[in-house]
Each structure stands twice: as structure tokens, then as C-alpha cells.
Design a binder for these strands. Structure first.
Lengths: 231, 231
DNA sequence: AAGACCTTGAAGCGATCGTTTGACAGTCGC
DNA sequence: GCGACTGTCAAACGATCGCTTCAAGGTCTT
């Protein structure tokens, strides 16, 4: 059995699922091993037995969803680059490759949409916590890859400016994912309970506008003759 | 002496300043009262003596900067509404009224720019922590007030959509304030150490584009004849 | 000078933290 | 049947948490 990677055995999985639910609700630092084992109906020592330490469990929870999301992001952006064969990929599609994996993976998870978004949002936000170096390296790789594609889509912008804008985009994403109740409390009633897809596309439009910021679409799409039909 | 409000006495001030520095670096939940008192060169009991409890100190730290910032925001937006006398205030000026108070207050603080932004960013981000109800009420008030002005500046948008976009804007702001080292590590060398003003204006441009998103400037500025000279 | 009040000091309180221990049962190959 | 291995259990370990206690010093008014 592979002890170090994603858990397969029933006991490890039960611990991870219980931890995910509590981490999503209260944050990674506000949940004790006793909380987790009690919620999973297991003994206190089980976490240390199966994961070596509390940090080992945190690492397991982090890699469980973050890795598929980042892998899908890289796969999508590579597929886009291939399909546009060297030409610059439209900004909308780049952003879609960055955001859509969240919707893809939320459906595969055993968590509710709300808990999944909170959990993943906390992972992005609380880098302070014990994030495994593997995951941090994945983030860097994803960011580097997307900045490269964005540089072609927004040739007027310096790489620095693209990094800053992506930083803003990620911040907005983390915030609305991790803090659902804030907005839901404020905008109560009006738009009911929007689906994840609705919210993500709302966010995508916001992020695209922020990234494009001051650069007209014609200039960007100049190389392709049918640019005016893009929208 | 006024015991309950912002500290004036030397001892209380020393504790607050020490706490601010540590909270900014490590977050509100990762700093113990022993850390704070040791860093301030005072006794462990001093926090409970001067602030009643650890949460009392946290509340003191929170109100110290958040209140002036939110007060200045409200003052600026009211001044704008007065100056434009009922007509819709341009989006750029609304956003400026929201962002500029950060730059104003950072200069008044005893903290470095970096620590100040991290501290304030954490306050906005970690609503989980013991945020005083007074401060939370201030945030609601500010948000409501700005959404009202934004509704006039962006009449095509439903209030719900404005709330969502402001949520994204706030998320981006919190993220780039609280996590300076992330970007600084990634974009090392390129743009050196940008000043707070530079970063804030960079952020403002991003936020304006995201808020306006899909709405042409002409439509927005239609009521005023000199709209085309706005930029 | 004396008493009232404010502030600090060292020590310790109970609670909770992550982790470890050692006994006990179940399962496997041989 | 019998060691070897795996997993679970209650119990406890040392460390740290926020907070309290109480004595001692300081400053003030009267």
C-alpha cells in the first residue's frame, strides 16, 4: 500500500473527510486532533498512526484537491496553446482554464459545494499553515505557466503588471470562495442561492475586465481577422 | 483616564504597538500573550490588567486603525456626493474614496508601510477572529454607503451585481495587502520595491476595470456633457 | 507621615494542545 | 498453532495556552 500519498484505506479516508469538513468550517489552525478524531468516530492516536503527525494530515488534505485542480489547469492551458498553435490564446479562454477546474473538481468531491469552496479558498489564503512544499511548487508552476500565456494575450503589458493583476485576481477568488457567508448575509434574498457555475462565471467576467484593463479588445485580437465576432 | 478607548498611557501603547507588529507578521491567532508581553518588555499580567483579556487587546488593535480608515472613507464619499450635488459621482472618484484612506492612515501610523498593510489586510481577512461588533458595524456601514454611490455611477447594474463585484474588489485588496512577500518573491528584481501609492493606484485601476466590466464609459457618463474630458 | 490608589512582579491555576506509550485484539503467512 | 504485523484503544506525557492571585513598589492626596 502507498502510505504516503492520497489515502485509500477506509480509516485514512474517514479521517481526511472529517478533517476537511472541520477545516473548511473553522480553518486549519482552529481544529484540534481531538475534534477531528471525535468527528470521525476514531481514536485520538489514529491521526499520528496513519499520518505521522497533525501536519501530515493537513498535507494530505491539501494535496487531495489542490493537486487535481492545478493539474487540470495545466492540462487545459496546454490544450489551449496547442489548439491555437502558437498564436495568442484569447484572454477569456485563458481565464476559463484557470477557473473551470474549480467547478470540475467540486463535482468529484464528497463535500458540498459550499464546504469545498471554503476549504480550497482557505488553502490558497492561509499559506502560513503547513502547506507541503510540493503544493507550493505546483502553485508557482501554474502561475508561471499562465503568466506566460497571458503575456502573449496581453502583449502591451509588462510581465510585472501581469503578475500584479493575477495577484489581484487570485485574491478576489480566494476571498469569495472562503467567505461565502459574508456576501450571502449581505445580499440575502435578492439572488437566492446562486450555483457555483453562476458565481464562477460572474467572477470570470470580473477578472477578465480587470486583467484587460485599459487595453481594447481590437488591439488584442488584431492578429485574427474574425476578431470582431469574438463576442 | 479613559480606560476603554484607544490607549494613551505609555504602558497600554507599548502593548498595542508590540501586538501590532506580531499580529502583522504572524496573524492574530498565532501570537500568544507571552509573545506580546515579552516583545514589549512587560509582564504577562499586563495585558489582562490593561485590556481585561487578550480579546480586549485584539479589539484595541483593530479599532486603532480600522476606525480612522472607515471614517475617512465615509467622509470622502460624502464630500464627493456633495461636490457632485446629486449627480452620479464618477467611478474613479468613488474608488479613490475607498482606497486612498489606506494611504492616508499608513503615514500616520508608527508601523512600517509593509507591516501596516499586512496588519490591516489581516483584519479584513480574518473576520473569524474576535472582531469587535463596533468594527463589523463600521464595515457594513461603509459597504452600504459605497454600494449606494456605485448604484448611481453604474445604473445598468443590479445592486446584487454591484455587491458581488465589490466583494471581489475587497478580496483582491485584502489579499495583496496581507500577503506582500508572495508577490515580492515572485516578481523579484523587476519592479524593485514599489511604494504604497504606486501599488494602490495599480490596484485602483484594476478594481475600476472590474467594477465597470462591460459598461462603456460613455453610457455611464452620459448625464454630464463634459464626460469625454474625464480622462 | 499615612492611607488610598495605580501598576508591576513572580508564581501558579486549570484547560487544552500534539504526541507517545503499552496493552490488547485481529489477521496473515508458514 | 505461532510469531509477525496491523490497527485500535485508554491513558498519560510535557508543553503551552489565557488568566488569576497576591505580594511589593510607586505615586498621589490629605
Amino acid at each position: 500500500m502507498d502510505r504516503t500519498s492520497v489515502p485509500e484505506s477506509g480509516a485514512k479516508l474517514r479521517l481526511v473527510v472529517a478533517a476537511e469538513e472541520l477545516f473548511a468550517e473553522r480553518g486549519f489552525e482552529a481544529v484540534s486532533v481531538r475534534d477531528i478524531t471525535k468527528h470521525a468516530g476514531m481514536n485520538i492516536a489514529s491521526i499520528n498512526y496513519h499520518f505521522g503527525s497533525r501536519d501530515g494530515l493537513v498535507a494530505g488534505v491539501m494535496t487531495r484537491y489542490i493537486t487535481p485542480i492545478n493539474d487540470e489547469r495545466l492540462a487545459r492551458i496546454e490544450a489551449l496553446e496547442r489548439r491555437w498553435s502558437g498564436k495568442s490564446v484569447p484572454l477569456e479562454e485563458i481565464l476559463d482554464a484557470f477557473v473551470r477546474p474549480l467547478a470540475t473538481q467540486v463535482r468529484k468531491s464528497e463535500l458540498s459545494e459550499r464546504l469545498f469552496l471554503k476549504l480550497v479558498g482557505r488553502m490558497f489564503g492561509e499559506q502560513s499553515s503547513a502547506m507541503p512544499p510540493v503544493v507550493e511548487e505546483q502553485f508557482k508552476q501554474v502561475l508561471t505557466r499562465f503568466v506566460k500565456s497571458l503575456s502573449k494575450a496581453l502583449p502591451e503589458l509588462a510581465v510585472d503588471e501581469i503578475l500584479w493583476r493575477m495577484h489581484f485576481v487570485i485574491g478576489a477568488m480566494v476571498h469569495f470562495m472562503a467567505q461565502d457567508e459574508v456576501l450571502q448575509r449581505i445580499s440575502q434574498g435578492a439572488s437566492g442561492n446562486p450555483t457555483v457555475e453562476t458565481t464562477l462565471s460572474r467572477f470570470s467576467r470580473f477578472a477578465i475586465a480587470g486583467l484587460r484593463n485599459g487595453i481594447s479588445e481590437e488591439v488584442i485580437a488584431k492578429p485574427s481577422p474574425q476578431a470582431t465576432f469574438n463576442f
